[in-house]
Design a protein around this nucleic acid. Sequence first.
RNA 1: GGAGAGAUGGCAGAGUGGUCGAAUGCGGCGGUCUCGAAAACCGUUUUUCGCCUAUCGGCGGAACGGGGGUUCGAAUCCCCCUCUCUCCGCCA
Length: 424
Amino acid sequence: MLTINQIRENSDFIIERLKVKNFKADEIIDRIIQLDTSRREIQAKTDSMQNEMNRISKEIGSMMKEGRKDEAEAAKQKTYSLKEEIKILSEKIGPVENDLRTEIIKLPNLPHESVAPGKSAEDNVLVRQGGTIPEVSDKALPHWDLIKKYDIIDFDLGIKLTGAGFPVYLGKGAKLQRALISFFLDEGVKAGYKEVMPPIMVNEDSGFGTGQLPDKEGQMYHATLDNFYLIPTAEVPVTNIYRDVILNADVLPVKNIAYTPCFRREAGSWGAHVRGLNRLHQFDKVEIVRIAHPDRSYESFEEMVTHVESLVARLDLPYRIIRLCGGDMSFTSSLTYDFEVWSAAQKRWLEVSSVSNFESFQANRLKCRFKDKGDKQTRLVHTLNGSALALPRIVAAILENNQTEEGIKVPEVLIPYTGFDMIS
RNA sequence: GGAGAGAUGGCAGAGUGGUCGAAUGCGGCGGUCUCGAAAACCGUUUUUCGCCUAUCGGCGGAACGGGGGUUCGAAUCCCCCUCUCUCCGCCA
Protein backbone atom coordinates (compact mmCIF):
# COMPACT_ATOMS: atom_id res chain seq x y z
CA MET A 1 0.00 0.00 0.00
CA LEU A 2 1.02 3.58 -0.59
CA THR A 3 1.73 5.67 2.49
CA ILE A 4 -0.57 8.46 3.52
CA ASN A 5 2.29 10.91 3.21
CA GLN A 6 2.98 9.88 -0.38
CA ILE A 7 -0.68 10.41 -1.17
CA ARG A 8 -0.97 13.72 0.60
CA GLU A 9 2.17 15.22 -0.83
CA ASN A 10 1.93 13.99 -4.42
CA SER A 11 -1.75 13.51 -5.12
CA ASP A 12 -1.68 14.97 -8.64
CA PHE A 13 1.39 12.98 -9.58
CA ILE A 14 -0.21 9.78 -8.30
CA ILE A 15 -3.40 10.34 -10.26
CA GLU A 16 -1.31 10.92 -13.38
CA ARG A 17 0.91 7.88 -12.91
CA LEU A 18 -1.97 5.53 -12.14
CA LYS A 19 -3.49 6.33 -15.52
CA VAL A 20 -0.66 4.21 -16.92
CA LYS A 21 -2.22 1.28 -15.08
CA ASN A 22 -5.65 2.35 -16.37
CA PHE A 23 -6.65 3.21 -12.85
CA LYS A 24 -8.81 6.19 -12.10
CA ALA A 25 -7.62 7.47 -8.76
CA ASP A 26 -8.96 11.00 -8.41
CA GLU A 27 -12.13 10.22 -6.48
CA ILE A 28 -10.46 7.78 -4.14
CA ILE A 29 -7.69 10.25 -3.41
CA ASP A 30 -10.18 13.00 -2.67
CA ARG A 31 -11.87 10.74 -0.18
CA ILE A 32 -8.53 9.74 1.34
CA ILE A 33 -7.44 13.31 1.87
CA GLN A 34 -10.78 14.19 3.38
CA LEU A 35 -10.65 11.24 5.76
CA ASP A 36 -7.08 11.98 6.68
CA THR A 37 -7.90 15.58 7.47
CA SER A 38 -10.68 14.60 9.80
CA ARG A 39 -8.48 11.93 11.35
CA ARG A 40 -5.93 14.61 12.17
CA GLU A 41 -8.50 16.95 13.60
CA ILE A 42 -9.88 14.31 15.90
CA GLN A 43 -6.37 13.24 16.86
CA ALA A 44 -5.32 16.77 17.76
CA LYS A 45 -8.44 17.28 19.89
CA THR A 46 -8.15 14.02 21.79
CA ASP A 47 -4.46 14.58 22.37
CA SER A 48 -4.99 17.89 24.09
CA MET A 49 -7.89 16.58 26.17
CA GLN A 50 -5.87 13.59 27.14
CA ASN A 51 -3.08 15.93 28.15
CA GLU A 52 -5.46 17.79 30.44
CA MET A 53 -6.70 14.52 31.85
CA ASN A 54 -3.20 13.30 32.62
CA ARG A 55 -2.37 16.58 34.32
CA ILE A 56 -5.39 16.33 36.65
CA SER A 57 -4.70 12.69 37.41
CA LYS A 58 -1.19 13.54 38.48
CA GLU A 59 -2.49 16.30 40.73
CA ILE A 60 -4.92 13.91 42.33
CA GLY A 61 -2.05 11.55 42.92
CA SER A 62 -0.01 14.12 44.83
CA MET A 63 -3.05 15.38 46.76
CA MET A 64 -3.77 11.86 47.93
CA LYS A 65 -0.19 11.47 49.01
CA GLU A 66 -0.38 14.67 51.04
CA GLY A 67 -3.70 13.65 52.53
CA ARG A 68 -5.72 16.48 50.95
CA LYS A 69 -8.69 14.22 50.44
CA ASP A 70 -11.33 16.89 49.87
CA GLU A 71 -9.33 18.65 47.17
CA ALA A 72 -8.71 15.32 45.48
CA GLU A 73 -12.40 14.58 45.52
CA ALA A 74 -13.15 17.95 43.94
CA ALA A 75 -10.59 17.36 41.23
CA LYS A 76 -12.18 14.01 40.45
CA GLN A 77 -15.46 15.77 39.73
CA LYS A 78 -13.70 17.77 37.01
CA THR A 79 -12.58 14.65 35.19
CA TYR A 80 -15.98 13.12 34.62
CA SER A 81 -17.11 15.33 31.77
CA LEU A 82 -13.66 15.36 30.25
CA LYS A 83 -13.57 11.60 30.34
CA GLU A 84 -16.91 11.45 28.59
CA GLU A 85 -15.75 13.77 25.80
CA ILE A 86 -12.58 11.79 25.27
CA LYS A 87 -14.59 8.63 25.00
CA ILE A 88 -16.88 10.09 22.35
CA LEU A 89 -13.98 11.38 20.29
CA SER A 90 -11.93 8.25 20.49
CA GLU A 91 -14.90 6.20 19.36
CA LYS A 92 -14.97 8.38 16.26
CA ILE A 93 -11.37 7.90 15.30
CA GLY A 94 -11.50 4.12 14.87
CA PRO A 95 -14.06 4.08 12.05
CA VAL A 96 -12.32 6.99 10.32
CA GLU A 97 -9.02 5.10 10.39
CA ASN A 98 -10.72 1.99 9.05
CA ASP A 99 -12.36 3.89 6.21
CA LEU A 100 -9.05 5.53 5.44
CA ARG A 101 -7.34 2.20 5.25
CA THR A 102 -9.96 0.61 3.03
CA GLU A 103 -9.60 3.50 0.63
CA ILE A 104 -5.81 3.45 0.63
CA ILE A 105 -5.57 -0.25 -0.09
CA LYS A 106 -7.66 0.26 -3.20
CA LEU A 107 -4.80 2.19 -4.77
CA PRO A 108 -2.35 0.11 -6.81
CA ASN A 109 1.36 0.73 -6.73
CA LEU A 110 2.71 3.47 -8.96
CA PRO A 111 4.36 2.21 -12.13
CA HIS A 112 7.99 3.10 -12.67
CA GLU A 113 8.62 5.88 -15.18
CA SER A 114 9.84 3.36 -17.77
CA VAL A 115 6.51 1.53 -17.82
CA ALA A 116 4.52 2.03 -20.98
CA PRO A 117 0.78 2.60 -20.82
CA GLY A 118 -1.29 -0.19 -22.30
CA LYS A 119 -4.23 -2.46 -21.83
CA SER A 120 -2.97 -6.01 -22.15
CA ALA A 121 -0.08 -8.26 -23.06
CA GLU A 122 -0.28 -6.86 -26.61
CA ASP A 123 1.23 -3.62 -25.38
CA ASN A 124 4.18 -5.13 -23.55
CA VAL A 125 7.61 -4.03 -24.67
CA LEU A 126 10.36 -6.38 -25.79
CA VAL A 127 13.51 -5.53 -23.84
CA ARG A 128 15.78 -8.02 -25.54
CA GLN A 129 15.92 -11.49 -26.93
CA GLY A 130 18.62 -14.15 -26.71
CA GLY A 131 19.51 -17.63 -27.90
CA THR A 132 18.43 -19.16 -31.16
CA ILE A 133 15.10 -20.72 -31.86
CA PRO A 134 15.82 -24.36 -32.66
CA GLU A 135 14.73 -26.11 -35.82
CA VAL A 136 12.66 -29.12 -34.90
CA SER A 137 11.02 -31.52 -37.26
CA ASP A 138 7.33 -31.54 -37.98
CA LYS A 139 7.15 -34.74 -36.01
CA ALA A 140 8.36 -32.95 -32.89
CA LEU A 141 6.22 -33.88 -29.93
CA PRO A 142 4.81 -31.55 -27.31
CA HIS A 143 6.15 -32.26 -23.85
CA TRP A 144 2.95 -33.97 -22.69
CA ASP A 145 3.64 -36.68 -25.26
CA LEU A 146 7.38 -36.79 -24.57
CA ILE A 147 6.90 -37.43 -20.87
CA LYS A 148 4.78 -40.46 -21.71
CA LYS A 149 7.19 -41.70 -24.33
CA TYR A 150 10.08 -41.66 -21.85
CA ASP A 151 7.98 -42.31 -18.76
CA ILE A 152 9.40 -39.43 -16.75
CA ILE A 153 6.30 -37.62 -15.53
CA ASP A 154 2.94 -39.23 -14.82
CA PHE A 155 -0.10 -37.00 -14.62
CA ASP A 156 -2.59 -39.82 -14.28
CA LEU A 157 -0.79 -41.19 -11.29
CA GLY A 158 -0.93 -37.74 -9.73
CA ILE A 159 -4.68 -37.71 -10.30
CA LYS A 160 -4.92 -41.00 -8.48
CA LEU A 161 -2.88 -39.74 -5.54
CA THR A 162 -4.20 -36.22 -5.30
CA GLY A 163 -5.92 -34.72 -8.30
CA ALA A 164 -5.33 -32.92 -11.58
CA GLY A 165 -2.32 -30.65 -11.59
CA PHE A 166 -0.24 -32.71 -9.18
CA PRO A 167 2.21 -34.59 -11.39
CA VAL A 168 4.40 -37.44 -10.27
CA TYR A 169 8.00 -37.21 -11.48
CA LEU A 170 9.64 -40.54 -12.14
CA GLY A 171 13.16 -41.79 -12.71
CA LYS A 172 15.13 -39.41 -14.88
CA GLY A 173 12.25 -36.96 -14.69
CA ALA A 174 12.61 -36.78 -10.93
CA LYS A 175 16.37 -36.50 -11.20
CA LEU A 176 16.03 -33.68 -13.70
CA GLN A 177 13.91 -31.76 -11.19
CA ARG A 178 16.49 -32.20 -8.51
CA ALA A 179 19.26 -31.20 -10.90
CA LEU A 180 17.50 -27.99 -11.89
CA ILE A 181 16.81 -27.05 -8.30
CA SER A 182 20.44 -27.61 -7.33
CA PHE A 183 21.71 -25.76 -10.36
CA PHE A 184 19.51 -22.74 -9.68
CA LEU A 185 20.40 -22.65 -6.00
CA ASP A 186 24.12 -23.03 -6.64
CA GLU A 187 24.10 -20.27 -9.22
CA GLY A 188 22.25 -18.03 -6.80
CA VAL A 189 24.66 -18.69 -3.97
CA LYS A 190 27.56 -17.96 -6.34
CA ALA A 191 25.90 -14.64 -7.10
CA GLY A 192 25.85 -13.78 -3.40
CA TYR A 193 22.39 -14.91 -2.37
CA LYS A 194 21.91 -16.59 0.98
CA GLU A 195 20.10 -19.89 0.78
CA VAL A 196 16.98 -20.12 2.90
CA MET A 197 14.74 -23.11 3.40
CA PRO A 198 11.50 -21.78 4.84
CA PRO A 199 8.28 -23.45 5.95
CA ILE A 200 5.90 -24.08 3.08
CA MET A 201 2.88 -23.31 5.21
CA VAL A 202 2.37 -19.88 6.67
CA ASN A 203 0.03 -18.27 9.12
CA GLU A 204 -2.50 -15.55 8.44
CA ASP A 205 -0.19 -12.70 9.39
CA SER A 206 2.30 -13.76 6.74
CA GLY A 207 -0.47 -14.02 4.16
CA PHE A 208 -1.41 -10.44 4.94
CA GLY A 209 2.19 -9.29 4.94
CA THR A 210 2.79 -10.07 1.29
CA GLY A 211 -0.75 -9.25 0.21
CA GLN A 212 -2.23 -12.66 -0.58
CA LEU A 213 -4.77 -12.03 2.15
CA PRO A 214 -7.44 -10.91 2.40
CA ASP A 215 -8.17 -10.40 -1.31
CA LYS A 216 -6.64 -13.40 -3.00
CA GLU A 217 -7.63 -15.87 -0.38
CA GLY A 218 -9.06 -18.30 -2.93
CA GLN A 219 -5.71 -18.71 -4.66
CA MET A 220 -4.11 -20.45 -1.70
CA TYR A 221 -4.77 -23.88 -0.27
CA HIS A 222 -5.97 -23.44 3.27
CA ALA A 223 -5.41 -25.94 6.05
CA THR A 224 -8.42 -24.81 8.04
CA LEU A 225 -7.92 -26.97 11.09
CA ASP A 226 -4.78 -25.04 11.99
CA ASN A 227 -5.49 -21.97 9.88
CA PHE A 228 -2.31 -22.34 7.85
CA TYR A 229 -1.92 -21.59 4.17
CA LEU A 230 0.19 -23.49 1.67
CA ILE A 231 2.50 -20.99 0.08
CA PRO A 232 1.89 -20.00 -3.55
CA THR A 233 5.53 -18.89 -3.80
CA ALA A 234 8.61 -18.71 -1.57
CA GLU A 235 8.20 -14.96 -1.73
CA VAL A 236 5.64 -15.27 1.05
CA PRO A 237 7.72 -16.87 3.81
CA VAL A 238 11.02 -15.32 2.73
CA THR A 239 9.71 -11.76 2.51
CA ASN A 240 7.81 -12.15 5.78
CA ILE A 241 11.10 -12.82 7.54
CA TYR A 242 11.40 -9.04 7.40
CA ARG A 243 7.90 -8.25 8.61
CA ASP A 244 7.94 -5.78 11.52
CA VAL A 245 11.69 -5.46 11.29
CA ILE A 246 13.96 -2.42 11.33
CA LEU A 247 17.20 -3.14 9.51
CA ASN A 248 20.50 -1.32 9.67
CA ALA A 249 21.26 0.30 6.34
CA ASP A 250 24.62 -1.43 6.17
CA VAL A 251 23.02 -4.87 5.73
CA LEU A 252 21.30 -3.75 2.53
CA PRO A 253 20.78 -5.16 0.03
CA VAL A 254 19.63 -8.37 1.69
CA LYS A 255 19.79 -11.16 -0.89
CA ASN A 256 17.96 -14.40 -0.21
CA ILE A 257 17.29 -17.40 -2.39
CA ALA A 258 14.91 -20.22 -1.60
CA TYR A 259 13.68 -23.35 -3.22
CA THR A 260 10.16 -24.41 -2.28
CA PRO A 261 7.29 -26.28 -3.76
CA CYS A 262 4.53 -23.83 -4.62
CA PHE A 263 0.81 -24.45 -4.40
CA ARG A 264 -1.82 -22.64 -6.41
CA ARG A 265 -5.51 -23.38 -6.60
CA GLU A 266 -6.05 -21.27 -9.71
CA ALA A 267 -9.54 -22.41 -10.56
CA GLY A 268 -10.83 -22.31 -14.10
CA SER A 269 -9.07 -22.36 -17.45
CA TRP A 270 -8.93 -25.36 -19.77
CA GLY A 271 -7.31 -26.07 -23.09
CA ALA A 272 -3.96 -26.41 -24.76
CA HIS A 273 -2.42 -23.46 -22.96
CA VAL A 274 -2.82 -25.12 -19.62
CA ARG A 275 -2.01 -28.63 -20.78
CA GLY A 276 0.81 -30.69 -19.39
CA LEU A 277 3.30 -28.70 -17.37
CA ASN A 278 1.99 -25.35 -18.46
CA ARG A 279 -0.13 -24.87 -15.39
CA LEU A 280 -0.08 -26.93 -12.22
CA HIS A 281 -1.46 -26.86 -8.71
CA GLN A 282 1.89 -27.91 -7.28
CA PHE A 283 5.21 -27.02 -8.83
CA ASP A 284 8.77 -26.29 -7.84
CA LYS A 285 10.39 -22.92 -7.97
CA VAL A 286 13.58 -21.22 -6.86
CA GLU A 287 12.90 -17.66 -5.87
CA ILE A 288 15.21 -14.73 -5.25
CA VAL A 289 14.13 -12.04 -2.83
CA ARG A 290 15.88 -8.77 -2.13
CA ILE A 291 15.45 -6.07 0.44
CA ALA A 292 17.09 -2.96 -0.96
CA HIS A 293 17.86 0.61 -0.04
CA PRO A 294 15.26 2.80 -1.78
CA ASP A 295 17.95 4.84 -3.51
CA ARG A 296 19.50 1.74 -5.03
CA SER A 297 16.65 -0.68 -5.64
CA TYR A 298 16.84 -0.35 -9.42
CA GLU A 299 20.47 -1.42 -9.33
CA SER A 300 19.22 -4.50 -7.50
CA PHE A 301 16.54 -4.94 -10.12
CA GLU A 302 19.06 -4.89 -12.96
CA GLU A 303 21.28 -7.39 -11.16
CA MET A 304 18.35 -9.73 -10.71
CA VAL A 305 17.40 -9.48 -14.37
CA THR A 306 20.99 -10.20 -15.38
CA HIS A 307 21.08 -13.16 -13.03
CA VAL A 308 17.88 -14.71 -14.37
CA GLU A 309 19.03 -14.07 -17.92
CA SER A 310 22.27 -15.93 -17.26
CA LEU A 311 20.27 -18.94 -16.06
CA VAL A 312 18.14 -19.31 -19.16
CA ALA A 313 21.14 -18.59 -21.34
CA ARG A 314 23.23 -21.26 -19.67
CA LEU A 315 20.42 -23.75 -20.18
CA ASP A 316 20.63 -22.90 -23.90
CA LEU A 317 17.02 -21.89 -24.01
CA PRO A 318 15.92 -19.23 -26.47
CA TYR A 319 14.44 -16.46 -24.40
CA ARG A 320 13.04 -13.00 -24.47
CA ILE A 321 12.69 -10.38 -21.79
CA ILE A 322 9.57 -8.32 -21.73
CA ARG A 323 8.73 -5.17 -19.85
CA LEU A 324 5.11 -5.37 -18.84
CA CYS A 325 2.91 -2.47 -19.74
CA GLY A 326 0.76 -0.70 -17.17
CA GLY A 327 -2.32 -2.78 -17.90
CA ASP A 328 -0.57 -6.13 -17.67
CA MET A 329 1.33 -5.46 -14.44
CA SER A 330 0.26 -6.65 -11.06
CA PHE A 331 -1.46 -4.37 -8.60
CA THR A 332 1.56 -4.32 -6.31
CA SER A 333 4.42 -3.90 -8.77
CA SER A 334 6.28 -0.80 -9.93
CA LEU A 335 8.28 -2.53 -12.62
CA THR A 336 8.06 -6.09 -13.88
CA TYR A 337 10.14 -7.91 -16.45
CA ASP A 338 8.82 -11.24 -17.60
CA PHE A 339 11.14 -13.90 -18.93
CA GLU A 340 9.79 -16.23 -21.56
CA VAL A 341 11.42 -19.24 -23.14
CA TRP A 342 10.58 -20.69 -26.53
CA SER A 343 8.83 -23.99 -26.52
CA ALA A 344 9.56 -25.60 -29.87
CA ALA A 345 6.72 -28.06 -30.24
CA GLN A 346 4.02 -25.80 -28.81
CA LYS A 347 5.55 -23.04 -30.92
CA ARG A 348 5.00 -20.38 -28.34
CA TRP A 349 6.71 -18.45 -25.59
CA LEU A 350 6.26 -19.70 -22.04
CA GLU A 351 6.61 -17.41 -19.04
CA VAL A 352 9.23 -18.81 -16.68
CA SER A 353 10.13 -15.87 -14.53
CA SER A 354 8.81 -12.56 -13.41
CA VAL A 355 11.16 -10.09 -11.79
CA SER A 356 9.55 -7.19 -9.96
CA ASN A 357 10.43 -4.18 -7.92
CA PHE A 358 7.66 -3.35 -5.48
CA GLU A 359 9.46 -0.29 -4.19
CA SER A 360 7.98 0.54 -0.78
CA PHE A 361 4.48 -0.75 -1.57
CA GLN A 362 4.97 -4.15 0.01
CA ALA A 363 7.35 -2.81 2.67
CA ASN A 364 4.66 -0.47 3.96
CA ARG A 365 2.28 -3.35 4.47
CA LEU A 366 5.04 -5.47 6.00
CA LYS A 367 6.36 -2.63 8.12
CA CYS A 368 9.88 -3.36 6.98
CA ARG A 369 12.03 -0.32 7.55
CA PHE A 370 15.66 0.59 7.83
CA LYS A 371 17.76 3.23 9.50
CA ASP A 372 20.80 4.88 8.06
CA LYS A 373 23.69 5.04 10.47
CA GLY A 374 23.25 7.90 12.90
CA ASP A 375 19.79 8.62 11.57
CA LYS A 376 16.93 8.89 13.98
CA GLN A 377 14.09 8.34 11.56
CA THR A 378 13.16 5.09 9.91
CA ARG A 379 12.40 4.73 6.21
CA LEU A 380 10.66 2.01 4.27
CA VAL A 381 12.86 -0.39 2.35
CA HIS A 382 12.21 -1.50 -1.19
CA THR A 383 11.40 -5.15 -1.81
CA LEU A 384 12.06 -7.10 -4.98
CA ASN A 385 11.62 -10.64 -6.05
CA GLY A 386 11.91 -12.87 -9.04
CA SER A 387 11.73 -16.48 -10.02
CA ALA A 388 15.14 -17.97 -10.67
CA LEU A 389 13.48 -20.06 -11.93
CA ALA A 390 10.11 -21.84 -12.02
CA LEU A 391 10.67 -25.41 -13.07
CA PRO A 392 7.74 -26.85 -15.02
CA ARG A 393 7.87 -24.67 -18.10
CA ILE A 394 11.65 -24.82 -18.13
CA VAL A 395 11.30 -28.59 -18.19
CA ALA A 396 8.69 -28.33 -20.93
CA ALA A 397 11.00 -26.20 -23.05
CA ILE A 398 14.03 -28.41 -22.44
CA LEU A 399 12.07 -31.51 -23.40
CA GLU A 400 10.58 -30.01 -26.54
CA ASN A 401 13.61 -28.08 -27.77
CA ASN A 402 16.17 -30.78 -27.11
CA GLN A 403 14.32 -33.76 -28.53
CA THR A 404 16.22 -35.89 -31.01
CA GLU A 405 15.78 -39.28 -32.59
CA GLU A 406 17.90 -40.78 -29.83
CA GLY A 407 16.19 -39.06 -26.94
CA ILE A 408 16.25 -35.77 -25.12
CA LYS A 409 19.58 -34.09 -24.69
CA VAL A 410 20.27 -32.78 -21.21
CA PRO A 411 21.66 -29.22 -21.21
CA GLU A 412 25.40 -29.29 -20.62
CA VAL A 413 25.34 -27.35 -17.37
CA LEU A 414 22.96 -29.88 -15.84
CA ILE A 415 24.93 -33.02 -16.64
CA PRO A 416 27.11 -32.74 -13.52
CA TYR A 417 23.86 -32.66 -11.56
CA THR A 418 21.92 -35.35 -13.41
CA GLY A 419 24.75 -37.77 -14.01
CA PHE A 420 23.32 -38.55 -17.48
CA ASP A 421 23.36 -36.62 -20.73
CA MET A 422 20.36 -38.12 -22.43
CA ILE A 423 16.84 -39.05 -21.50
CA SER A 424 15.98 -42.04 -23.63
C1' G B 1 -4.43 -35.25 23.00
C1' G B 2 -3.56 -34.38 28.85
C1' A B 3 -1.30 -31.16 32.78
C1' G B 4 1.24 -26.80 34.10
C1' A B 5 3.97 -22.10 33.37
C1' G B 6 4.59 -17.72 30.83
C1' A B 7 4.32 -13.30 27.18
C1' U B 8 7.86 -6.27 29.46
C1' G B 9 12.87 -2.23 25.22
C1' G B 10 18.12 -5.60 20.25
C1' C B 11 18.78 -9.66 24.15
C1' A B 12 18.56 -11.14 29.43
C1' G B 13 15.61 -9.58 33.33
C1' A B 14 13.14 -6.37 37.51
C1' G B 15 8.76 -4.03 38.25
C1' U B 16 1.44 -6.06 41.56
C1' G B 17 -2.55 0.81 41.21
C1' G B 18 0.12 7.31 41.16
C1' U B 19 6.48 11.53 37.54
C1' C B 20 7.17 3.82 34.83
C1' G B 21 8.52 4.63 28.55
C1' A B 22 9.80 1.50 32.40
C1' A B 23 15.52 -0.45 37.34
C1' U B 24 19.80 -3.40 36.38
C1' G B 25 23.05 -6.28 33.24
C1' C B 26 24.65 -7.45 28.28
C1' G B 27 24.95 -5.73 23.44
C1' G B 28 25.12 -1.24 20.03
C1' C B 29 26.79 3.84 19.23
C1' G B 30 29.85 8.33 20.68
C1' G B 31 33.86 9.94 23.76
C1' U B 32 38.19 9.97 27.48
C1' C B 33 42.74 7.21 27.98
C1' U B 34 46.26 4.73 24.04
C1' C B 35 51.00 4.86 18.69
C1' G B 36 46.70 1.58 18.04
C1' A B 37 43.63 -1.92 20.47
C1' A B 38 41.76 -4.31 24.96
C1' A B 39 40.36 -3.04 29.87
C1' A B 40 38.46 0.89 32.71
C1' C B 41 35.62 5.26 32.96
C1' C B 42 31.88 9.00 31.04
C1' G B 43 27.77 9.76 27.91
C1' U B 44 24.04 7.81 24.68
C1' U B 45 20.64 3.99 22.95
C1' U B 46 12.24 1.70 21.65
C1' U B 47 8.53 2.82 18.19
C1' U B 48 4.58 5.54 16.54
C1' C B 49 0.89 9.61 15.88
C1' G B 50 -0.43 14.82 16.16
C1' C B 51 0.72 20.11 16.68
C1' C B 52 4.30 24.20 16.13
C1' U B 53 8.90 25.28 13.13
C1' A B 54 12.04 27.58 6.58
C1' U B 55 15.68 24.46 9.28
C1' C B 56 18.00 22.82 13.91
C1' G B 57 14.45 21.53 17.10
C1' G B 58 10.37 22.03 20.64
C1' C B 59 5.59 20.50 22.82
C1' G B 60 1.90 16.85 23.44
C1' G B 61 -0.76 11.88 22.70
C1' A B 62 -0.37 6.43 22.33
C1' A B 63 2.10 1.64 22.93
C1' C B 64 4.72 -3.41 28.37
C1' G B 65 1.34 -10.28 23.18
C1' G B 66 -4.00 -8.61 21.00
C1' G B 67 -9.01 -6.93 22.38
C1' G B 68 -12.45 -5.31 26.14
C1' G B 69 -13.50 -3.76 31.36
C1' U B 70 -12.71 -1.48 36.51
C1' U B 71 -10.39 3.44 38.15
C1' C B 72 -9.42 10.40 38.61
C1' G B 73 -5.07 7.21 37.33
C1' A B 74 -3.31 0.35 34.81
C1' A B 75 2.87 -2.88 32.74
C1' U B 76 0.49 -3.71 37.60
C1' C B 77 -6.60 -5.58 39.10
C1' C B 78 -10.83 -8.34 36.15
C1' C B 79 -12.73 -10.84 31.48
C1' C B 80 -11.96 -12.86 26.45
C1' C B 81 -8.55 -14.27 22.57
C1' U B 82 -3.75 -15.50 20.51
C1' C B 83 0.98 -17.27 20.88
C1' U B 84 5.28 -19.54 23.32
C1' C B 85 7.66 -22.81 26.69
C1' U B 86 7.97 -27.27 30.09
C1' C B 87 6.39 -32.26 31.39
C1' C B 88 3.44 -36.60 29.79
C1' G B 89 1.37 -39.20 25.39
C1' C B 90 2.06 -40.11 20.10
C1' C B 91 5.78 -39.87 16.34
C1' A B 92 9.77 -38.96 11.18
